[in-house]
């Protein structure tokens, strides 16, 4: 095993372990903290793939904003912090069975695809060129100019909708 494989396996195990902790812990606040670690594991996987921009975005947006938003949501909610809620119900055995069957069906289908065993081709962009290509792709009319502007409208809708719902209307 090469050094890169060892690094990949350790980060993948870290990600999977913290993801399991997120869904199995009873205390919601601790689950949110484990979620931060899981997201950090995802970011390191992006970094291993050479997608440094996505690794940075993962840390900036998911850990910096979304995880904090989740922690705020937990802190804002009354009485949900108590440990009495169980994480399982009666159907958990059936759910495990169904999920594993679906998992093996999906893996079986994907592995019959010819591109599955094909090794990835080397990335032609190096260093800053990836971000340059992404930036040009965002704004060039032949690239993703329309999705770029649509993202702006989407963000506007999220901003207005979120503020409209979350704002305290009683004191206006």
């Amino acid at each position: 095993m090469s050094v890169q494989q060892v690094i990949f396996i350790s980060f993948a195990l870290l990600t999977v372990f913290s993801a399991i902790m997120v869904v199995s812990l009873r205390n919601l606040f601790h689950a949110a903290l484990w979620l931060v670690l899981a997201l950090l594991g995802i970011a390191s996987l992006f970094a291993l793939l050479g997608a440094s921009f996505f690794a940075a975005v993962q840390i900036l947006v998911y850990i910096g904003a979304i995880a904090i938003l989740l922690i705020f949501a937990v802190m804002l909610t009354r009485n949900i912090m108590s440990d009495e809620v169980t994480q399982t119900n009666r159907a958990w055995g059936l759910a495990v069975l169904l999920v594993s069957v679906i998992f093996f069906i999906i893996i079986g289908q994907i592995s019959s695809w010819s591109g599955f065993s094909q090794p990835l081709s080397e990335f032609t962009y190096t260093g800053q060129e990836t971000i340059l290509a992404l930036g040009k792709g965002f704004v060039s009319p032949s690239g993703f100019a329309l999705p770029f502007e649509t993202a702006s409208v989407l963000l506007l809708a999220a901003l207005l909708g979120g503020v409209y719902i979350a704002m305290d209307k009683g004191k206006e």
């Binding site: 947006v61 904003a65 992404l134 963000l155 979120g162």
Partner: peptide, 19 residues
């Protein structure tokens, strides 16, 4: 929430700013 929105906006604008 407002921070999250402008955070995502920065993510979109950063590649453009580099280019």
């Amino acid at each position: 929430l407002v921070f999250l929105i402008f955070d995502v906006e920065t993510v979109f604008l950063f590649p453009f700013a580099v280019a």
